[in-house]
Amino acid sequence: MKSEIVIQLSTLLVLQLNWNQFIAAYGITVLPPADLLVIDPGFLGQLLIRWTLPSSLEMVNCSVRFQLQYFNTYEDRWTTIRTTDLSYNAQFDLEKDVRVRVHTLLGGPCVNGSEVQSPGAEVVLKPPDKGSTGSKIKSLSCVFYWREFMECTWEKGEDEPEHPHYHLFYWHREMEMTMECPRYIESNGVRTGCSFPGDSLLEFTEFNICVNGSSADEPLRPAYFTLQIQNLVKPAAIETVSLEAQPNGLFHLEWLPSEGRIFDVCLEYEVESRQTDMLRNITRETTFTSLSMDPSRTICFRVRSRVHQFCADISFWSEWSHPSCPSETMEIYMPIATETIMLGVLVSFMIMLLVLSLCLWSFRGRLKICERIKGMFYVPYKTKRSFPHPSLG
């Protein structure tokens, strides 16, 4: 009995050595993965890709890993993953073809330290042909208000049948199964959207939605959407804004962040000022100072906010705050300040004229004194008279 076991082990060892030598010597093609499957667990686009090791490599003393490639329809390109696992989860648009292929990668001493790639095992799944193309809703628009609740609305399809009855289902990674819309939005007895409470949402992951339905004539073609809801946040409008006029012609604006569950450090603001022209400024502070360009005209301000790029890729601007304009006290105060400045300039100018006049008067007096001193010491110059020389002789 022991001799038979020894013979069998020796045979396996010889077969393994011969296989390794055969691969190294003749460059044999490695077999692709076996039993490649794409499984839909019902998560509205989150699919499970699964395969098994080729039977020819089960006893080979080599390192084996796999190269998974799937076509990412969201980015319109192939995505490549290298792994030693036998399964992988990926997100797909179920309205388009699902295309997956997996290669075996064989490396190690049996291929002289290099790596040999097998041909690819490939699977292509077509979307189900259910309902006419025109029965599918056109688009889905979602807004995450104040990070407290989200509303999604859709537009009817181009060939919407009479009396359609829509259903919305959703899923994210912390859910064990898909759920239907907790509260539908209706218009004239037809479902046109869904309202989600905050506790049903999950940020920074795929939030999958499917809108399908039926009618008396035919089923409606399903429409699938994958969202990142942290990019759909819209803050509430800013309500508390204060405006203060300063004597030097400046206006100081200050406000409080809007209510809601948005962190203050994630907000940036846009300040709009209107006087002769409309000006807008972006800031992450809750204060803003502006110079009045024309004191004779009223200047008004309003503010709105959004989540900035360090907390989300994109976001929605809030509604504008109510305009803040100078009060009657400010309007009276500003001209007084202007007249004071002009009066100061006029007085300074008159003082300068007076000083200049005094300087000129003093200079003129000094000039006369100099002329008198000059007269005292000045001897007029007279031309000498010419006398004849006495004659000789």
Rank of each mutant, 00 (worst) to 15 (best):
S3G: 12
S3A: 12
E4V: 14
S10Q: 14
N18L: 15
W19S: 15
N20P: 05
Q21D: 13
A24H: 09
L31K: 00
W51C: 06
N61E: 12
C62D: 09
C62Q: 09
Q67G: 00
Y74V: 09
E75R: 11
D76N: 13
W78K: 00
I81H: 06
D85W: 00
D97L: 15
D97Y: 15
R101L: 01
H103R: 15
G107H: 11
G113T: 02
G113K: 10
P127F: 03
G131A: 00
S132V: 03
S135C: 11
L140F: 05
W146G: 12
R147Y: 00
E155N: 01
K156P: 07
H163Y: 14
H165D: 14
C181H: 02
P182T: 06
I185R: 01
S187D: 09
N188H: 14
C194F: 05
S195A: 06
G198I: 03
G198W: 03
D199F: 07
L202K: 14
C210P: 07
S214K: 01
A223S: 14
A223H: 05
F225K: 03
A237W: 01
I238Q: 02
Q246H: 12
L250I: 07
L253S: 02
W255K: 08
L279A: 07
D294T: 08
S305T: 12
I314L: 13
F316D: 10
H322M: 13
P323W: 01
P323G: 03
C325L: 00
I341S: 15
M342T: 11
G344S: 01
L354A: 09
L356Q: 15
L358S: 07
G375Y: 07
F377I: 05
P380W: 10
K382P: 08
R385D: 04
P390D: 08
S391L: 15
